[in-house]
Nucleic acid binder design. Structure first.
Lengths: 206, 206
DNA sequence: GCCCCGAGTAGACACTGTCTATCCGCAAGC
DNA sequence: GCTTGCGGATAGACAGTGTCTACTCGGGGC
C-alpha cells in the first residue's frame, strides 16, 4: 500500500470525504480536483463525466456498507439476531453517512443504466446484499408459518428500513412523534426499528 | 379564475410541469423563466432564491397528493380499506409523478428549515397527512390486540410505503424479484403493497 | 404635471461541466 | 545520444447556471 496511490483512487477518496463532510450537493468535479491538488481537467482521464465519478463514489459507499454488515454480523448465528443487526446497521449507516446514503440512491446523478468503467451496473451492487437478506428471511421464516415467498418479505422489509432511514433524516418522523409525545426522545428510532422488525418478521422470541 | 394569473402562480405551474416531464434535476431558475416568457431575473421578485421556488413547487406537490387521497377515499368507511387506498395511492403518486416525489423529499434543495414566503415550514406540510394516518391506524387497531402506540405503527407503515416507492423507482426491487422469479411481472408491486399492509396492520379480514 | 414606486429587463460576476489544444517527462528505437 | 511517440496532466475556451445590481418603463397618488 504505497502512499503514492494512483490519481484515480485519490479522486474517489477525496470525493467520499467531501460527500461525508459537505453533502452530496457540494461535490463538484472541479472541487474534487482542487482538493486532490490537480487541475480541473485531470479527472477526465479516468472519469469521462461527472456522473461516472459520482458513480464510483457511490460504489465505494455500497462496499463500505457491506463491510459494516460483515463486521457487525460476525459471531452471530440466529437469523433473527442477524436481521436485527442488519436493520440497525442499515439505518445507522444512513444517519452517520447521510451524504453517502443520499448519493447512493440518486439515480439521476449516477450512471445506473450504463456499465461503469469497471465492474457491473451500479444498481446490481445491491444484489449480493439482498441475496443475503433473502436467505436470512427464509431461514427465519422456516421456523414459523408457511414460507410465503421470502423474497417478497425481504423486499418489503428492506423497503421499510430504507423508508425509515430516509424519512428520519428528512425530519418529519421525529416531528410527528413529537406531536404524539408518547415515546421518550432517545428511544424513538430504536422503537421504530423494533417495530419494523416485528411487523415483517413476526414478534421476537426471547 | 382569470387566465392572466399572477407571475408567481405561473412560475410555480411552469415549474411543476417541468418537474413532471423532465425530472427534478432539469428545473433551473432560468429555464422556468424562459418557459414562462419572462427574463431570467423576473422570478427573483417573488422567489429570492432558487431553493424557495423549488420549495413552492414541492408544496404544490404535497397539496396534489393530499387532494388525491381525499378523492380516492371518498365513500369508504372501513379503516382497513381506507389504509389500503392510502397505500396504493401513495406509491401510485410516486410512480406517476416521479420527479415531484423526488423533489418533495430532497431536503438539501428545499428551504425545509426556514419558513417559506407564505405558509408554514415545508416539513410540516406532511403533518396533517400523517395525522389522518395515525387516526386510521388507531381505529384499525382498536378492533384487534392492544393499542401499542398507533403513532409508532403509523410511522413504520408510512416508512415502508415510502421506501417501497423509492426503491421501486430506483429499480433494484424489480431486479431482485426478477432473480427470484416467483411472482409474475405485473403483480409484483401489488404483492409488495399487500405485504406491507399485512405486515403492519395485521392480515386482512375478508 | 410631477414624482415615486413596483414590476420586469439586462448586464455583470463567479462558478460549473465539458471539450480541445498544448505541454512535459520518460521510455523505446535507431 | 538523439529523436520519436505517447500517456498523463495542464490551461484556456465555451455555454450554461444562480445571484446580484443598475436600469427602464408605465401607471397611480398628490
Amino acid at each position: 500500500m504505497k502512499t503514492e496511490s494512483s490519481l484515480r483512487e485519490r479522486l474517489v477518496e477525496v470525493g467520499v470525504h467531501l460527500v461525508m463532510t459537505e453533502g452530496a450537493a457540494a461535490v463538484g468535479l472541479r472541487e474534487i480536483a482542487r482538493r486532490a491538488g490537480v487541475s480541473h481537467g485531470a479527472p477526465r482521464r479516468y472519469f469521462p463525466t461527472h456522473h461516472s465519478l459520482l458513480s464510483a463514489i457511490a460504489r465505494r459507499g455500497f462496499a463500505d456498507l457491506e463491510a459494516r454488515f460483515s463486521a457487525a454480523m460476525a459471531g452471530l448465528t440466529s437469523p433473527r439476531d442477524l436481521l436485527g443487526v442488519f436493520a440497525r446497521e442499515y439505518v445507522a449507516y444512513a444517519l452517520e453517512c447521510r451524504g453517502m446514503f443520499e448519493l447512493m440512491f440518486r439515480h439521476e446523478l449516477l450512471d445506473s443504466d450504463r456499465h461503469g468503467s469497471d465492474g457491473p451496473r451500479l444498481r446490481e451492487s445491491t444484489l449480493p446484499l439482498f441475496e443475503r437478506l433473502v436467505a436470512l428471511v427464509a431461514e427465519c421464516r422456516s421456523a414459523a408459518s408457511p414460507p410465503e415467498e421470502p423474497a417478497v418479505t425481504a423486499a418489503a422489509f428492506w423497503s421499510a428500513l430504507h423508508g425509515l432511514a430516509q424519512l428520519w433524516t428528512w425530519g418529519s418522523l421525529r416531528l410527528v412523534l413529537d406531536a404524539h409525545g408518547a415515546v421518550p426522545d432517545g428511544e424513538r428510532l430504536d422503537r421504530l426499528v423494533a417495530e419494523v422488525l416485528d411487523a415483517h418478521l413476526g414478534p421476537a422470541v426471547p
